[in-house]
Design a protein around this nucleic acid. Structure first.
Lengths: 128, 128
DNA sequence: GTAACTGCAAATCCTTTGCTATGGA
DNA sequence: TCCATAGCAAAGGATTTGCAGTTAC
């Protein structure tokens, strides 16, 4: 099937790229307040299509499903205080692929890490 | 509010302990095939209560929400072939709390890791 | 005894689907 | 032109809620 690059599909992808990470609720809210006449069905259908095309990925962070555009391998940092999600590169996390070891007899091909803590901004706000 | 240790609540908790990890669907199926007359509403209500009491936790592994009883800190290994979920202790993963470093200016208090690969059993089955 | 709890059915919420019209290539 | 896609409304599925009866303590 030959995909068409519709206006609505671009809006869904671009909104997600701008938001960085968004739950379906956040994304819908963002799209509907910035563009008019895009139906829920269209947003959901495009998310599905974009995931099929490996343009968009759904991840669960701190209990919430969020969508993000597909980027280079990265981990996530979740601020438990403000909820902000920050992408962490393997380098920032101090992890290199050579550190991947199999566990017992099970083969490890990949892993995801989610870090939790308090982000710099919240630390500053609390002190002041 | 004083909680009562009802039969149904014990069944929900015990079933989850036996299953190790279960999606709501798996858990419901297990309970309804092993016990009679436990309604869906009761299962869901008890999961919520058990989570409030920190007896049960909901995690997302490889895209699926699963419940587990609260245990000592551990990570998860997901076999991409058979879907089995295996608990991995920090020791097995080769990770100690002293390895936790803050990232840039953000404070890291904790982290979760999900490993993906092919488990020992599946490796053996594929070779044979 | 009484308030937390259960089962049932109805309600709700989020997402998907069927259908007809539209528009991108 | 023509088929993938959009909008709308209806359907679907998972979870939650209201209510009356039940039960743990």
């Amino acid at each position: 099937m030959i995909r068409r690059n519709t206006n609505q599909r671009q809006i869904v992808y671009e909104s997600l790229r701008i938001l960085g990470h968004a739950s379906s609720e956040n994304l819908i809210q963002y799209i509907q307040s910035n563009y008019s006449n895009i139906s829920l069905a269209t947003i959901y259908r495009n998310l599905t299509i974009l995931m099929d095309e490996n343009m968009v990925k759904k991840v669960k962070l701190d209990g919430i499903d969020v969508y993000e555009t597909v980027k280079a391998k990265h981990y996530h940092y979740v601020c438990k205080h403000c909820g902000e999600i920050i992408d962490i590169t393997p380098a920032e996390a101090g992890i290199s692929s050579s550190m991947i070891k199999n566990i017992n007899l099970d083969r490890v091909d990949d892993f995801d890490i989610t870090f939790y803590g308090m982000c710099h901004k919240c630390q500053k706000n609390i002190i002041n």
